[in-house]
Simulated assay, not measured.
Amino acid sequence: MASRLPGIACISVIGKQNNPLLISLFPQEQRDPLEFSFLLSSCLDIFETRAPFKTADQDFGLLQAVDERLAMYGWQTNTRVKFVIVVDMAARVSRDTKANVAAGIRDADLKPAFRAIQAAYINLLRNPFYTPDEPVAPGSEQKVPSAQITSPAFVKEIRRIAEVWVPGIAAI
């Protein structure tokens, strides 16, 4: 008998100005991009509400449970770039009858994934040809936010993180 295990449904990078820089869906052919775009937009207010209370910890934990299957978790860098992971509680099929089926996941289960995403983002920023989005200075001309992240190496690393992650993994 096959059991269902949690897996990552979406990884998103959201810029300082709350503009989506990357939205990766897993598996892409089974997910609606517009639905996830709306879900990601709905969590931005939660980041703004919790931001004044965060000190050293960048992990925002559970942002919201969309339904009994999808839950959104957040992480914010010190430059206010946000990472959001949407977990599908029944994304993976396990053929192992002795598999430990989790009733839920803990915030700590996602820390290795967020650290791996942050490391990949730092490597992207080290690329001299990548221009990160810059904040708009009050009273200055409106600067157009940068386009979405298209780096093949970054997209490949995000895909690898989503495929490797399982609840309880220590490092990615």
Rank of each mutant, 00 (worst) to 15 (best):
S42Q: 11
V66G: 01
T150C: 04
D59N: 14
V164T: 13
F36P: 00
I11V: 14
I46K: 02
F47T: 05
S3T: 13
D107I: 12
Q17W: 03
P132S: 05
R50G: 01
A99F: 03
R92Y: 06
A91D: 05
F53H: 07
K54M: 14
A9S: 13
L22H: 00
L34C: 06
Q64C: 13
K143L: 15
R106P: 01
P128K: 07
I105E: 05
L63V: 05
P135Q: 11
N127W: 09
R80W: 08
R106N: 05
F154R: 01
R126S: 11
C43M: 11
N127H: 04
R4N: 02
S24E: 15
D133P: 01
T97A: 06
S41K: 15
A71E: 09
P112Y: 09
F114Q: 02
P135S: 00
T49G: 06
L63K: 00
D88A: 09
A162P: 00
D32N: 15
A91Q: 08
F26D: 03
N19T: 15
I172R: 02
K82D: 03
A99C: 11
L21Q: 04
I11T: 04
I85M: 11
F129V: 12
C10D: 04
K82S: 02
V87E: 01
R106Y: 09
L25W: 11
A90R: 14
L22T: 08
A120I: 10
L63D: 00
V66M: 04
L62P: 02
A65E: 09
Y121Q: 07
E48C: 01
I122A: 06
F129E: 14
Q76C: 14
R159I: 12
L22E: 05
T150F: 05
K143Y: 03
A119S: 13
S42I: 11
P6A: 03
V81S: 05
L70E: 05
Q17E: 15
Q118L: 14
A91F: 00
P27N: 10
R115I: 11
L21E: 01
A113N: 07
L25E: 11
A162M: 06
R69Y: 02
E163N: 10
S146T: 15
Q118Y: 15
T79L: 07
T97C: 08
R106C: 07
G61P: 06
F47M: 10
A147C: 06
Q17L: 13
N123A: 15
I169H: 00
K143D: 08
L125C: 13
A99N: 02
A162N: 05
R126C: 08
D109K: 00
K98D: 15
A120H: 10
L22V: 11
F83E: 08
Q17H: 05
Y130I: 09
P6I: 06
M1I: 13
G139H: 07
S146W: 02
Q148E: 15
Q76H: 02
I149M: 08
A170R: 14
D57P: 02
V166N: 06
I11A: 03
F114R: 04
V136W: 01
F47G: 01
G61Q: 04
F154I: 03
F83N: 07
R95H: 13
A108L: 06
Q76M: 14
V144Q: 06
I46M: 04
L21W: 05
D96F: 12
G7L: 11
P52N: 12
L21V: 06
